[in-house]
């Protein structure tokens, strides 16, 4: 498969994947573009791999957790505001929106871990292999991420009290 054929077939999936991992469509677009620009000159070698797309997904993760991206992500997190609760919205929608905002605000590694675990149904061992870290690291990152997300649950009593 040539690079052009791969891009034609898999670009939408890669963009969607990067959007989930980054929590930000603009970052996802930039990262996927940067990754493909880097991959193109190496395609002769990448295409010989069993699953070239896995290699690119790993490149996406590496790019997302790079120093430069972390700085950008931190700036974005600082701008994130939890949604104002609007009484006429369904509770479920409010909770999901709150959860989305918290997910966006997570540190990149934590967000990536729970995205891979809950959205892509990957086993922790596979996540560790993909991210190039230990199983313990994956589990600790997931634990911290879930602790932050539980903040949503703490919002619920206030809604119920109203």
């Amino acid at each position: 498969m040539t690079f052009e054929e791969f891009v034609a077939a898999r670009l939408p999936a890669l963009v969607r994947h990067a959007t989930v991992l980054s929590g930000d469509p603009h970052v996802a677009e930039d990262v996927v573009q940067d990754v493909l620009v880097k991959a193109q000159p190496r395609w002769t070698r990448i295409r010989t791999l069993d699953v070239p797309e896995s290699y690119l997904r790993k490149m996406i993760i590496n790019e997302l957790v790079s120093t430069r991206r972390r700085v950008t992500a931190r700036l974005r997190r600082e701008r994130v505001q939890l949604p104002v609760e609007v009484e006429d919205r369904a509770e479920q929608v409010v909770q999901r929106e709150a959860l989305v905002q918290l997910i966006r605000a997570l540190p990149p590694r934590q967000r990536i871990v729970i995205a891979l675990r809950y959205f892509e149904d990957m086993a922790d061992g596979d996540i560790a292999a993909l991210m190039g870290c230990s199983l313990a690291t994956v589990r600790s990152q997931a634990s911290r991420a879930l602790a932050r997300l539980r903040h949503v649950a703490t919002l619920e009593p206030s809604r119920e009290a109203r």
Binding site: V15, A18, T19, H26, L36, L99, V100, A115, F119
Partner: peptide
Amino acid sequence: AIRDAFAAIADEAPSPERIR
């Protein structure tokens, strides 16, 4: 709930045309 939240984020994925 987490899966739904990620699905909502995924639905914001931009069109790949600019990258193409």
